[in-house]
Design a binder for these strands. Structure first.
Lengths: 249, 249
DNA sequence: ACCTGAACACCGTTCAAGT
DNA sequence: ACCTGAACACCGTTCAAGT
């Protein structure tokens, strides 16, 4: 309700307001923000984001909870930094994309991002909050948009393609690795559940039960990614043939 | 670590284990599960999922927190029911799809789902947990798979198409309506932030800054949905021409 | 100047005691 | 049989007091 400008942790304005690390520390810092964030990500990976406690984090660092508040305004701010740190682990060596078509290159980057997200399932929901605009997110964005531009995509189409791919990869991963941890045994459970339904009410679901539960979620991810790339291929052809036409329709 | 079968709230096994409502209540029930869930969704819409407190919910119902535990094992179980109830608000009258092509029909259903999700931004993250398999989720799944099947999609392609569309819509909405509430003013902030970056480091991002922030997220949603439908159109043509071929590649 | 023990208000959950 | 006040252990956060 307040018309005051609020700095939401993780927002563009919040990142812009962050100082570039004081650096007037003489000798060794007894406790710096980087070390706290790194340990926080470790703990999130281990116990999950809900179970992460400031007391637990402080203990792991050999400190007290109050000390954490000297480096972060609160848990939200700490988690925003954890989110960007974990995005920083996405790495695709530039030479890996040499000689690839735009489609292969985008696919490689998307799969690398997806792979990193899958390696930190417990941290994933941190990306649901807002458009990630920390330094590591910026680097990834720059990389992918450059890829589109360098392969002849117009600026507008590049921007939309980036958002579509980025939202798809992150959105899919978030659902793929929820707290309900859908392992292989859950697949079997789900199939049994579908088959236990009343055929009069759910004929299509029952007919598709095997197909809905036999394919791994990773293959489902690749299938959806392929659909998006198919669509982008078509949009790119259209744009190159009629440079003046709008992207839509 | 326990090898015991755990019933995770919201999982297929958990839904399967739920009794179909005792119904031996004589007279009027002083407090039934449906009323609690309805009020819980109301409160989640108002104050957000994090701020929802069992005490708050009990107060709103004129009761105490302990009473809630007579109907649900805990907050997780309550929220799983809230999630399905809110999926139940998606409604597309059957006649609305009459005479539409499969593409128009799927698009209509996807947009209806997206619209409902947008109307409950605070409840959205409830869908991130696992594959929703409550009764209302089942109904929606049945509907959409039927749509694919009735328009000549093979069973396997129907199943994958459903998952791709479903994950896309839910995943996009989750990112669209995070706690960081990206309103129009945030768009401007984000654009300014991009423009404030070092052109040497982020040339592509800066070039695309206007395009990245000028288009509404709803249009971005429609664009990505269109890409997926383009891809499905192609996959459908391929499947109809070579019925024996696999879906992949 | 930097750190922290101890407290505060509040959370989800439980259970003995009420009706 | 059904409900609940009051307590329990624990959370994020604060601040006066230590070094």
């Amino acid at each position: 309700m307040a018309s005051e400008v609020q700095l939401v942790a993780g927002s563009a304005a919040w990142w812009a307001s962050r100082k570039p690390a004081p650096e007037y520390r003489r000798g060794r810092p007894p406790m710096d923000a980087g070390r706290i964030v790194a340990k926080a990500l470790e703990l999130v990976d281990e116990v999950g984001i809900q179970a992460l406690t400031l007391r637990m984090l402080a203990d792991a660092l050999g400190s007290g909870t109050a000390t954490l508040y000297r480096h972060f305004k609160g848990k939200d701010e700490l988690l925003a930094l954890v989110a960007d740190r974990f995005l920083g682990e996405v790495s695709v060596p530039p030479e890996e994309l040499d000689g690839l078509s735009w489609r292969e290159a985008v696919s490689t980057v998307a799969e690398a991002l997806h792979g990193t997200l899958c390696r930190h399932p417990n941290a994933l929901s941190l990306l649901a909050a807002q458009v990630p605009v920390g330094p590591n997110a910026l680097r990834a964005r720059e990389r992918l948009i450059t890829l589109f531009l360098s392969h002849g995509f117009p600026v507008e189409l590049s921007a939309r393609a980036f958002t579509a791919i980025g939202h798809y990869v992150i959105g899919f991963a978030i659902q793929q690795h929820g707290p309900g941890a859908p392992g292989p045994e859950d697949h079997a459970q789900l199939r049994d559940y579908y088959h236990s339904l009343d055929p009069a009410d759910y004929p299509a679901t029952i007919a598709a039960a095997g197909e809905l539960t036999s394919v791994s979620l990773h293959d489902e991810f690749l299938f959806g990614l392929g659909l998006l790339l198919d669509g982008l291929e078509r949009a790119r052809s259209n744009a190159l043939q009629e440079p003046e036409a709008a992207v839509g329709h």
